[in-house]
Write a protein that binds this DNA or RNA. Structure first.
Lengths: 330, 330
DNA sequence: ACATTTCTTGCTACCGGTAGCAAACGTGCA
DNA sequence: TGCACGTTTGCTACCGGTAGCAAGAAATGT
């Protein structure tokens, strides 16, 4: 059984289809009498307006594509929750696109564009800027934004947490606590994102103490990859030559590293090895980890992204200051 | 600048718009010559077909609404990853809808329906069956499915993990390990879902040992709520009167309970209190928790859901057997 | 009572595609 | 050269709404 259209309701109510539309358009010019008549007929036929047809006519879908490529990061879930809730509060709906080996960013952007989304939010880490600059959508394409990562892409503003300030805060804290042999674990060696935090952290120690950073790289941004990278390092380097504090590019890596340090190498955290993460993912707060980490100002970031999408704010890169969360691990 | 339409390309290439459409329709009847001509003109104008218009004409959007209401459960993320990836592999796109206090199931279903989605997947826990039975979409509405939960709703098949078998397996394991004073922590006392696992578990112990289950309820399905529920119980009951094993309705609750038991009450897990979860969320595998839990057959479930959506399988409730994952906690 | 203003209703045209029929085209064969 | 046939192309009608104009109805003023 096909669904009822405005035309069907119109016939049922004995009016024209435009009167039916008006009955469903808030603030439209229509008498109470005909509105009631239409609404009753609509009820009888179980009429629900077709938003697809409306979108086609109004040239606006109220849909926002959100591209996610690192589901391994547990922090994605609460962030996604806030993002979807805030979008919905503005009458926007989320098209969630999973970027993976079988579904590239370019593919996703093309698809989202053809579905006439109002905006595309790149909410991930694993893409290279070149991917996107190569593929300009040209005229009429939806505006794009990068969320929770920086971006050098021309015409694609980024909404992110201020990495310079964050790293400086973390560095100062570690310095004050007396750590002197720092290490850094990056999540994916090839990405320009990784370079940001790493470079800042490296620079910090060089300037502060003239000390060189020990660098290691995990294959991906996951606890398993972090565990493996830590295992590689710890089994290679003798206890007396080891770093005394490890900064991980995100919490997922930190959890893996801490697990390995404690259970496979019998190290005490923070006494033998201090660990710092980034994101303040849920398990970080648990006494099982007690991870010192850095919390991104997700509320502000989400708000800023939505303001840009709705053109309530200028579409330009913005940074927000996050907050250092000190716990037991460092 | 507005985007180019088939009509624009047609004029540019000196053909009719239908020929342009054919150039973009695989297998359509068109000569190589005109196809090349059209494609070249399309390239010049940067033409991309409008899927909205196509959806309106073909009456199929290739969009599936996925309603999620428990973002607090870390297990949702990998599950969502699989679901979106599999949908995309079939050419379907995910409309992610966040159900919360400000956005009800009914609201979400109405919206998804008006956007003409091809199917609606209820991927959550917090809804009551009545909510949905009350609100039948009537003729022409998209098919609905319940994923990872059971459902008694008429006409809404459920794809879930067999709770009876799961609870029996867990019970047998605990019995064999010698636990005799069982407790159960539910995530939300009011929901019928909760009743399933709880009832089965209760029944199991009653039948096996004639023992009564100690029941407790958390406010929500989150680590914090689990922690609070455990705190309430442990501070109320003297050590000698306590349960010796606690089955939690999901891992998130178990993590919170374990944290509290160990760090606030100095209990050893599993010696003083054994703990079992459900879902096999990522942190369960970590040595920090080593949680004995039950893994749902997510791959099978996702596949089954998609087969039903695409009508490759009959649309009827199915159950799949999961797997007990024994670790240190029980 | 009649002119004028305002509100309500119906209309045409349009959004950008798809479906399927009919005409135009090119080709093979007698 | 003429005819039948299959292929290619263009056409009308349609999907279900929106925009904005114009005619008709009702309310207001004098």
């Amino acid at each position: 059984m096909k669904r009822a259209t405005a035309q069907n309701v119109a016939m049922e109510a004995g009016v024209s289809k435009w009167t039916v539309i008006r009955a469903f358009t808030p603030g439209a010019s229509i008498t109470e009498a005909s509105k009631a008549k239409v609404l009753e007929a609509a009820e009888r036929l179980n009429y629900r307006p077709n938003l697809l047809a409306r979108s086609l006519a109004t040239n606006s879908t109220h849909q926002v594509a959100v591209l996610v490529d690192d589901f391994a990061n547990p922090h994605k879930l609460p962030f996604l929750e806030k993002l979807t809730a805030s979008l919905q509060a503005e009458g926007l709906v989320t098209m969630l696109i999973n970027i993976n080996q079988h579904y590239s960013h370019v593919h996703a952007i093309l698809n989202a564009d053809q579905r006439q989304v109002d905006a595309i939010v790149l909410f991930g880490t694993a893409f290279r800027d070149e991917m996107l600059t190569d593929h300009k959508l040209g005229r009429g394409g939806p505006p794009m934004f990068v969320l929770a990562r920086d971006s050098q892409i021309e015409g694609v503003p980024a909404i992110s947490c201020d990495a310079v300030v964050a790293i400086a805060e973390i560095g100062e804290h570690l310095l004050k606590r007396g750590y002197r042999r720092p290490g850094f674990m990056a999540g994916a060696r090839t990405l320009s994102t990784a370079l940001g935090r790493r470079r800042n952290f490296k620079e910090f120690w060089r300037t502060a103490l003239g000390v060189e950073l020990v660098e290691m790289s995990a294959e991906r941004y996951s606890a398993e990859a972090g565990a493996q990278a830590a295992r590689d390092y710890l089994s290679k380097v003798a206890p007396e030559d080891r770093i005394d504090v490890l900064m991980c590019e995100n919490d997922a890596l930190a959890f893996g590293a801490m697990d390995v340090a404690r259970s496979e190498f019998g190290l005490r955290v923070p006494d033998d090895l201090a660990i710092v993460g980034f994101d303040n993912a849920a398990p970080a707060a648990s006494p099982a980890y007690g991870l010192t980490t850095y919390e991104q100002p997700t509320d502000q970031m989400v708000k800023a992204a939505i303001d840009m999408i709705l053109e309530r704010a200028p579409r330009e890169t913005v940074n927000f200051k996050g907050e250092l969360v000190v716990r037991d691990s460092a």
